[in-house]
Design a protein around this nucleic acid. Sequence first.
RNA 1: GCCGCAGUGGUGGAAUUGGUAGACACGUUGGACUUAAAAUCCAAUGGACGUUUAAGCGUCCGUGCCGGUUCGAGUCCGGCCUGCGGUACCA
Length: 867
Amino acid sequence: MSDYNPAKIEKKWQDYWLENKTFKTDTQDKSRKKYYVLDMFPYPSSSGLHVGHPEGYTATDIIARYKRMNGYNVLHPIGWDAFGLPAEQYAVKTGTHPRETTRANIDHFRRQLQALGFSYDWDREVDTTDPEYYKWTQWIFLQLFKKGLAYQADVPVNWCPDLGTVLANEEVIDGKSEVGGFPVIRKPMRQWMLKITEYAERLLEDLDELDWPESVKEMQRNWIGKSEGADIFFPVDGIDETIEVFTTRPDTIFGATYMVLAPEHELVEKITTDSQRSEVDAYKEEAARKSELDRTELNRDKTGVFTGGYAINPATGKQIPIWVADYVLMGYGTGAIMAVPGHDERDWDFARRYELPIVEVVKGGDVTKEAFIDTEEGELVNSSNDEVSLDGLPVDKAIKRINEWLEKKNLGKYSVTYKLRDWLFSRQRYWGEPIPIIHIDGEAKPVSEEELPVLLPEVDTYKPSGTGESPLANIDEWVNTTDPETGKPARRETNTMPQWAGSCWYYLRYISPDYEKAPVDPELEKYWLPVDMYVGGAEHAVLHLLYARFWHKVLYDIGVVSTKEPFQRLVNQGMILGEMEFTAFKSNGDYIPAEEANGREDLERISLTEDDVEKKGNDFVLKGTDITVEAKSHKMSKSRGNVINPDDVIREYGADSLRLYEMFMGPLEQVKPWSMRGVEGVYRFLRRVWNMMVDEQTGELNKEVQEAEPTKDQLRALHQTIKKVTDDIENGRYNTAISALMVFNNDALKWDTRPVSILKPFVLLLSPFAPHISEELWCRLGGQHTIAYEPWPEYEEKWLQSETKVYAVQVNGKVRGQIEVPADKADDKAYVLEQAKSEDGVKKHLSGGELVKEIFVPGKIVNLVVK
RNA sequence: GCCGCAGUGGUGGAAUUGGUAGACACGUUGGACUUAAAAUCCAAUGGACGUUUAAGCGUCCGUGCCGGUUCGAGUCCGGCCUGCGGUACCA
């Protein structure tokens, strides 16, 4: 009854927080410093929370609670990224409206999150599928359209016949659909695109100011992929056309011995001669049919055909053949290249295969063996004509000189190209935001803002239309409408938006979830933005974060928000893997070493327990043998059966233990394996904390807990803990903060008297991590209100000092003894050295030789060097 | 291939600027309590060797590998190896 009973106290305090709206944020109160701490909101899947969710959510909850106790006005919201394919696929199968499925899943998620004791303001949930929310998602689309940033184009898209829908590049993995693993082929289709490329430079530049992990910034930089070079014009021989190419190596132009056009390039048609036409057409058709999978598989083997046409190399004046090959991509640069086989690996491979000439124009390698691509060491050769010579120049100087010449002759110009492509924004699905556009006589016209939201209509079937259009296309009475302005018959856009749309701006809606005049109240936005801390999975390092930054910048340009960037600080939590598994491998009944098992499917896999194995050298082996086994933690997955359900953990150990364990496992950012024994460890800690204060028998406070004057040692223990925990929270080191709390508790358990004035601050320190037990203990120690807004304790330097200091004494860098000196003499070099030299263990090692050097590091160490 | 990150006991991890490597926790072993078990509590716990009646003491080795800088390196520098993540014909 009086034992630590998480089930009871956690329910009690969760109810208390909800009933009292303890964590409701007064967004209008601008008198205090604000802190906006945000979680990446979850997709409410039918399987509920997994243990990865509480990891990031606990970290942000600790920060939110800590900041509140430090007097900040804290905004800590949660919501639902609720559009998504699974609910739609379920609808196709069962006929259940995705809205129903989604609602049930959200309720489930909400209950689970509340059972974890997170201090969200539950009055500002957002749900991307709520018409009141997606009204503003559509509104933002209209602004994009009006700025010319949303346009339609016929683009080859990833058509997945089995799903009956089109997939975005990021949903296609190795030529198969991410969901279901169905084959994907390329098919041209009319699509909405967002012109993110127009923002490429700003998206790149503004990364520098962000307090984000360097790895994420680097990934975004690579994704944007800025290259500097030149556009150069090559006249086509015999017809009045020029081919524009982009190159980062204009210096190698004298080595351009042929040209290549992408199969989709518009000039292919014109340039191809009659004798080559059938061959070229066949090649084009083959390339168009190739799926992404085929393209990657054929990666190594470059193919192409000669068009029969020639261009003139403007530097050499020579005629060079024009080829078509799919190693040149239409989507990058100009879709055409000048091929310099001597100094580009791809061109070299291609030239070798089709016996095209290879000319050396940069000295330093052997172009008969491989392409020489070193730009540091090379020196230009064979590169001169009547007007310009690059011979003898290093690469960087040569680029400058040739660019000047090209520009003067109007043959080319300095140019920058990005890998980043425009964002394919339409989906042929039901369960997404309708794109607010009507088509009149083939013209796209935006729905007026007053008519938003364009609601999702009810449908009879959620099956894709099969033609590639969404199920919306089958509802005639919805599709066919009239233009309210002119009364002309119009057709509604049947495409819906991708799931990314709703998550691009949700952090704005939290600030003023009921505001009716704009996505966000402009007055409040100025106070609350940017998000101070954003925590989520590394899988969103590029796409979500790039798309959200893009929208934010557009909103900045039209005056909706006042900051250039949405998320000032970003932290990625690492994945939690399943428990460590040991596996032995058998081939034909005999055990074989684990390193031979790599990638083999024909082996029998035998799961082992910890008792079956032992460590030998760097490997684990079957006990008593030399047969190595695999020791590995795997990703949690249903198929592997190693998924940990947070509900089960809470039932057995309580939410405080789950929270504490997930933080204690190791650094937040790191990938780490789950261990049920580890959960038990922190559970035992919480129980010891409980028993340190509460009497098991009576349920009253322990007899050791007294209104007594604390001793110096007790004050030191407390203030050291305050310092350590405060510092660790500030720096995101939750694991070591918890360890400090454990150290304190281990100490306190040894005390005969536990002064209330020491215990209360300790409970405050514990509360962000384990809020339920802390509220309960706080209450029992005489707290009148919730602990949530009690001031965070501050340490005092004077209590940290001890009366003596310990020096380690080294001789030639090896520790040979320790000395304890009074604190007031700790910085007295002569005194400390004298003590050090007379220490027994040290003396022994000094006797062998002559003392040549004495190193004294105040407060830390003494090192005596002997020869 | 390229870019980024990481390798520390049986395990997760700690060591804030170069200053006593292994905090804290798990596991294991031994002990107390118990008729017994669980739970709890106490103690030991990087490895090898030596020494003492014993608690103990001592020596050497040890942070993926090889080398360097330094009085002193888990930490800094150079060269590798392995694992994880991202990306991949980007001209």
